[in-house]
């Protein structure tokens, strides 16, 4: 405002205008937004509370023993055998296989894109890989069953590889989380300041030496977070294992045999619809709770790693 005009305005009016007003609308909007903010807390509490409530009859039933639950090797709720190990083992097997595929290829792709590829190539390949990440998992399951399993059986022999096996599910799951890891790692590598690389080149380092000695150590927190998020995704993945890994809890270390993962078991048993308040129903919530805490702690770990390692830097 022009100073000369200010004088023309009545002092009283100005002070009236500038006084802090009690704006009801603003208050209302703010409290609505605060409510929105707390919704996510409600959801988390809801998950813990509901899963806990439904799982309680299972955990508190007389047939349930915590030691047996965590160390038993047979899961057959119908005959009161509640060893969760076969399900956890199968989940771990598929996850480890998936990571064996996804980590080397995912990080390899990330390094190539951020350190070697031209800008143009990067801007084509990255979205292409992101398409892979957007394909529904039921399509991956179909792919595992109709392509990877027959391929494995030709490769290793029909007697070795069962038609439903954790290897096939794991490999395809690896393909599923590959773009996730590649994309997150690429972001982490790209965030390393250009000056660090220039300094290394200036000392005569080759590109790969710069990458291993300078860029990767600088981006290590981002890479670690990418891998942990990938693990958490693999543990929770459902449709691929439901279609390709097999349909019966089985304690085995052999990836060429069928076995049922935690998620696969939940979806199979609930797909047949459940009797309310039966031990089957409640035990599923027990598994879900375990699964929830497994992925939750991995996610917490990844956030912690990012924070800790970036502090170190």
């Amino acid at each position: 405002m022009i100073p000369s005009q200010t004088k023309l305005i009545d002092e009283k009016v100005t002070s009236q205008l500038l006084k802090k007003r009690n704006r009801l609308g603003e208050r209302f909007i703010e409290s609505t937004l605060v409510f929105c903010g707390f919704i996510s807390i409600f959801i988390t509490l809801g998950i813990v509370f509901e899963l806990g409530k439904e799982a309680l009859p299972f955990f508190s039933s007389t047939d349930f023993k915590l030691i047996k639950f965590l160390t038993g090797t047979t899961w057959q709720p119908q005959i009161k055998l509640f060893g969760v190990l076969p399900l956890v083992m199968a989940t771990l097997t598929t996850t480890v296989i998936a990571l064996l595929i996804a980590i080397p290829f995912g990080i390899g792709i990330a390094i190539y894109l951020s350190e070697y590829a031209s800008v143009k190539l990067r801007s084509t390949i990255k979205p292409t890989l992101e398409i892979l990440a957007g394909i529904p998992t039921v399509v991956y399951g179909y792919f595992a069953l109709s392509f990877v399993t027959p391929f494995l059986r030709v490769l290793f022999g029909k007697d070795v590889v069962e038609i439903y096996n954790t290897a096939s599910a794991g490999i395809v799951m690896g393909i599923l989380i590959l773009p996730l890891i590649a994309s997150m790692s690429e972001d982490a590598l790209a965030a390393v300041p250009r000056s660090l690389r220039e300094a290394a080149y200036g000392l005569g380092a080759t590109k790969i030496e710069t990458t291993y000695r300078v860029v990767i150590p600088a981006a290590i927190s981002g890479l670690a977070a990418a891998i942990i998020v990938g693990i958490s995704r693999a543990i929770g993945e459902t449709m691929i294992v439901a279609l390709a890994a097999g349909a019966g809890p089985k304690f085995t270390f052999n990836p060429f045999q069928g076995a049922e993962t935690m998620t696969g078991h939940i979806v199979r048993v609930s797909g047949g619809d459940l009797s309310y308040d039966s031990i089957d129903y409640n035990s599923l919530f027990g598994i879900s709770l375990l699964l929830f805490f497994m992925t939750l702690s991995l996610n917490m770990l990844s956030q912690w790693v990012v924070r800790k390692l970036s502090e170190v830097k």
Partner: peptide
Amino acid sequence: QFSEDDNVLVQGVEGS
């Protein structure tokens, strides 16, 4: 192996 999905059984038996 148990499945409500009979196709899982068909393929499983067929496989070995």
